[in-house]
Amino acid sequence: MNYDASLWLIFILLGLATTLPRASFIVLGNRFSLPPTLQRALRYAPAAALAAIVVPDIVVVSGQIDPVNPKLAAGIAAILVAMRWRNPWLPFIVGMAVLLGLKALLPA
C-alpha cells in the first residue's frame, strides 16, 4: 500500500492526541481538575476501545461473523496464555503458532 503526505498529518494529530492528555494536568498543576464522576467513567475507555478493535478483527471474516476461523482460535489461545502467565513473549509465540498451524492444516 502507498501513503501520501496526509499520513504525516495523521501522525502529527495523533501525536497531539497522545501528548495533550498526558501533559494536561501535569502542566496545568492544581489550577484545574476533572469532576470525579467523569474520571471514574473514563477509566473504562481503554478497555472498551481495545475490545472494539480486537473483537471484530478476530470474529468477522469478510463482513460475516465466523465463529470457526483460525484468527479467533489464535486470539482465544493468546487470551488464555495472557491470563495464566506473566511472560510477555508467550502470548505471541502461542497465538502465532495456533494461527499458522491452523492455516497450514485448513487450506482456504
Partner: peptide, 15 residues
C-alpha cells in the same frame, strides 16, 4: 484519543 484517555487520569493523579 479513546486509547489515550487513561493518561488524562494518570496525569491528574501524578500532577
Amino acid at each position: 484519543l479513546a486509547l489515550n484517555l487513561r493518561f488524562l487520569i494518570f496525569s491528574a493523579g501524578i500532577a
